[in-house]
Simulated scan of single mutants.
Amino acid sequence: MLAYSTYSEAGGVGKTTTAANLAVAHARAGLKPLVVPLDPQDGDLSRLFGVDDERTEPVDNLVRHMIRRPKGEFTDLIRTVEGVDVVPEHNMLSDLSTFLQREKEQAEAMGEAYGMHAQLLRVLREAGIPDEYDVLICDPPATEGPHLYNAIHATRSLVIPVEPSAKGRAAVEGLEALVAGFEDQLEIDVGVLAAVPVGFKDTRDQRTVLDEIEYAIPEVFGERASLMEGCWMQQCSAFRYVREFRDRQRDYERETLAQFDRLARYLEREVGLEAPNPPEPGDVDHEVATI
């Protein structure tokens, strides 16, 4: 199983759009992806895919499963869009830290061990997710805390969007320390599958920043603000947006889609996962296989 969390310390670098479009790219190739977004903010992956309609309702949700108070089966939480299974975010995520701390205190009062940061992994294993799915993608918030730590504990690998600029240079320089800090905090090995520069304009300073990244850089994405804004407006992936909402297909946008396809294939190869039906990169008319 390919499992990774998309993470960046900086906001606005395309972390969520990267996760969403990679999920669709995996699905386009005939794989079965599950996306577990964990961001308590409204502008999240559930919003992007249009499955956040119950986030304020008193319904069963991921948090209830993480604190062992589910109202139903985990699989009943899942919504499918563009060939991707998604566990929608819920407003209870805002209080996840409080809920988990309360559970920890109760467990310890009973003389039981309780791993606050291992609860998402427990839920996924108990639901048989590693056997059911080919790909697991977690999209946590940028801030450190139980949302992020549970995501990393469940996936053990990162895909890191980075801004190749003077502003983003500090984040680039701190990547190794960041990963080492996660390993110390969680007491697990954390790997970096790829760094993904976003908003590259091929300036000398940006090239210098890229040279300082010590992780693999399979693709470098240019400035695509209009395309990504369109995705948020229409609540869909870039693949669907170009196919259904553009009056004409632009070559540079098709190349962006091809980059997501190629990046997905790279990540799959890193863990020895072979997609059964990979499309020609950027082929917007390629049908998502029904699994």
Results as ranks from 00 to 15, higher is better:
274 E>M: 07
195 A>L: 04
28 R>S: 06
89 E>P: 06
18 T>N: 10
289 A>R: 11
131 D>I: 04
33 P>W: 02
180 A>L: 11
283 D>V: 08
193 L>K: 09
37 P>F: 03
100 L>V: 15
126 E>G: 08
12 G>F: 00
108 E>R: 14
145 G>L: 05
117 H>P: 05
288 V>L: 00
241 Y>F: 15
189 D>R: 13
89 E>G: 15
203 T>N: 10
259 Q>K: 15
21 N>M: 01
127 A>E: 10
93 L>C: 07
19 A>F: 03
287 E>A: 13
5 S>Y: 07
107 A>C: 08
8 S>V: 01
34 L>P: 03
204 R>W: 12
234 Q>A: 13
204 R>Q: 15
90 H>D: 09
30 G>D: 03
197 P>D: 06
49 F>D: 00
44 D>F: 00
148 L>G: 07
16 T>H: 03
247 D>S: 14
173 E>M: 12
184 D>G: 03
61 N>V: 08
181 G>Q: 01
14 G>D: 04
195 A>D: 01
118 A>Q: 14
11 G>F: 02
112 E>R: 14
252 Y>H: 13
77 L>N: 11
291 I>E: 12
215 Y>R: 06
213 I>D: 08
125 R>G: 11
166 A>P: 06
66 M>E: 10
223 E>S: 12
272 G>D: 06
90 H>P: 07
96 L>D: 07
29 A>D: 01
249 Q>F: 10
166 A>I: 13
168 G>S: 02
8 S>E: 01
107 A>P: 09
122 R>M: 09
75 T>R: 14
282 G>W: 01
259 Q>N: 07
148 L>Y: 05
174 G>R: 11
116 M>L: 14
150 N>R: 08
22 L>S: 00
139 D>L: 05
135 V>C: 01
104 K>C: 11
2 L>F: 04
276 P>W: 02
276 P>V: 06
160 I>A: 03
179 V>N: 01
88 P>H: 07
82 E>W: 03
134 D>C: 02
74 F>Q: 08
252 Y>D: 15
260 F>W: 03
32 K>E: 07
68 R>N: 15
267 L>N: 02
119 Q>I: 11
275 A>I: 00
253 E>V: 09
114 Y>N: 10
35 V>C: 07
289 A>P: 06
50 G>V: 04
128 G>I: 08
70 P>K: 07
4 Y>T: 05
106 Q>M: 13
99 F>D: 15
144 E>F: 13
238 A>F: 03
200 F>L: 05
113 A>P: 09
165 S>Q: 02
186 L>S: 05
63 V>Q: 08
216 A>P: 15
183 E>H: 02
123 V>G: 10
289 A>M: 09
182 F>C: 04
161 P>E: 04
74 F>P: 08
66 M>T: 10
66 M>Q: 10
244 E>V: 02
169 R>N: 11
250 R>I: 15
169 R>F: 13
9 E>T: 13
100 L>R: 08
26 H>A: 03
176 E>T: 14
144 E>V: 12
291 I>T: 12
236 C>S: 11
21 N>L: 03
75 T>V: 14
276 P>F: 03
287 E>T: 13
275 A>G: 08
268 E>P: 00
247 D>F: 12
98 T>E: 14
80 T>E: 14
31 L>E: 00
108 E>C: 07
